[in-house]
Design a protein around this nucleic acid. Structure first.
Lengths: 335, 335
DNA sequence: ATGAAAGCGCTAACAC
DNA sequence: GTGTTAGCGCTTTCAT
């Protein structure tokens, strides 16, 4: 059995309070006793029980992270950045994959905000409605990669980049490169940013004279496989001479789309132009460089962690204004 | 402030024991009272405090996972599989990135096995020495993707595939394809499997008549960047007519190596053959298909979770024999 | 069927 | 400087 603070106290002939004092160094303890206590700990192989401490001080030093799929590089980059950021404050991450499913996401969310097993919660690209979100109890939450909205609590923060203008920049590029037909393989309708990207893309095109009903739209999940499948549908009767450019909702789906196009024998960007979104680490090696839009995973994760740390360590009472990050086009070789 | 079990009891005019009984459904409670209690909970927005429960029952329903880098697809696939597996038992994952650093790994390990903040621990491709590992206290640990060794505790399990024969299969393929020169971009010497892969590769070659001192060896970390850099060194004065084949320690490093070769204008596999290891999800799309060896992430993660669940839920007292998984060559287009 | 009370391991206020 | 003690929120005997 694991030794407790009592065992240490007994062995060192001191009270448990004194042991606790050397543990937390909250009070001065004479060198003599401190030494004896340290020895006793050593001999007993004692380590404090973090659960008991958590109960007492009402802090767990753990932060919940809900993410659609850790296997998607975009998300794993964010999670990594969050971890690095919060490690500065000795916090650990409890990460949950919702598998892109609303129901799982909500289940995780509810279990976190209620059980009090975490000190804070970070939601990455959540799909919940505003209403679900507002069930929030005591724990501070920060929402990453989703546009901000009115929120009932002063304890919800947002960190994101403006996807509308990001998407409009790819529309401009398509026009500049003289493509004749346009399509968007958008993300799921349940994802706010997916719709925003589509809108930004479409509106810019329309504004420049493209007729709205000439802009094709497809939908797919943010995954390689679904990007591949969506492109397959799009290509069903496509003639390369039409010079089409397609904006795919995310890099990982764009990669799938590219492979689908290649499988059909198409040359990129000559037979078809393809742009992604996110600028994941691997993007520069996808088909000699995927043209995409920067979505700063490292900065988003870092800022999310910072917001939490300020709130938790420095006791900042209400949470910051939405943090909006820079976005820009990354021109490479697929458009 | 969050409501406690006392508040609920008071509001429902019952004792806290009765409230607890409806929470845990460990004892029969009359419908009348149960109803009243449920209502009170609803009205107060009560949810049990998981920390207090953990302290009492000495279970946290959390499992620590230490992984070199969640951003590496090989590892994120494993973590995902572990999560899916342990979710069956309502366990959550605390994931820590050691950033491939021994020191961080050991620090995380120690903090986990001592603090008792987790019910079990999963180490993915750890670099610790046997000695470090044996400091283990009470918590069960399972070690994934590392060859088993004698261990002091009966509470350590192993899940892995035989990397020695996996690597020897790529050597055989190289020979079969009539390559004339051979190199291995191995992983770090601190990683047992990195050495085993190198040995398996080299020994097969030697056994088939290649002279040992003709097999070049380079070392790099399991990352894209380091694979790229290592290949850069190897290529410094390489003449394509020499028909070299290089075995890179992991798919992600192999991808880097491939990009480095492409950057030098080399054609793969004509000017140089490259094989990886792991068969990550993306492998089939790296340069029209990376030739590699299956390292079953899904199965490893799943089995690791199962071992833990059996130990934790079914109270299986000592832990299973090492679980060794199938491995096989995946021939694609880079060799 | 329900309640009283002990106690999980720790921290912190208070007393000496 | 050190010790005594209450109590964090829950589960679980043991009475009744």
């Amino acid at each position: 059995l694991r030794a407790t603070i009592r065992d240490v106290a007994k062995r060192a002939n001191v009270s448990i309070a004194t042991v606790s004092n050397v543990l937390t160094s909250s009070k001065y303890v004479s060198d003599e006793l401190r030494q004896k206590i340290l020895e006793s700990m050593e001999e007993l192989g004692y380590e404090p029980n973090v659960v008991a401490r958590s109960l007492k001080i009402n802090k767990t030093f753990r932060i919940g992270v809900i993410v659609p799929d850790i296997t998607n590089p975009f998300f794993s980059e964010i999670v990594k950045a969050i971890e690095i950021s919060v490690n500065k404050g000795k916090y650990q991450l409890i990460v949950c994959n919702s598998d892109y499913e609303l129901k799982m996401e909500i289940d995780f969310y509810n279990s976190f905000i209620m059980g009090a097993g975490v000190d804070a919660l970070i939601l990455v690209a959540p799909r919940m409605t505003q209403e679900d979100l507002n069930k929030k109890k005591g724990v501070p939450v920060v929402i990453v990669d989703r546009p901000p909205f009115e929120v009932s609590s002063k304890d919800v923060a947002f960190v994101y980049a403006d996807n509308y203008i990001g998407a409009s920049m790819v529309a401009s590029l398509f026009l500049e490169k003289k493509y004749k037909r346009f399509a968007c393989i958008a993300g799921p309708e349940t994802v706010p940013n997916a719709n925003i990207r589509y809108e930004g893309f479409k509106n810019k095109l329309v504004q420049k004279g493209v007729r709205e009903n000439e802009i094709e739209i497809y939908r797919c999940e943010f995954s390689f496989d679904e990007g591949y499948a969506a492109m397959g549908m799009l290509l069903e009767n496509y003639d390369p001479s039409e010079k089409m450019a397609v904006f795919v909702c995310s890099d990982i789906a764009a990669w799938g789309a590219i492979e689908a196009a290649k499988a059909k024998g198409l040359e990129i960007p000559n037979d078809i132009g393809i742009a992604g979104y996110d600028n994941i680490y691997f993007a520069k090696f996808i088909h000699r460089g995927l043209t995409t839009v920067e979505n700063p995973t490292k900065i988003m994760g870092d800022e999310a962690g910072n917001v939490i740390l300020r709130r938790l360590k420095m006791g900042e009472t209400s949470i910051s204004e939405p943090i909006v990050l820079k976005t820009f086009l990354i021109e490479r070789n697929t458009v």
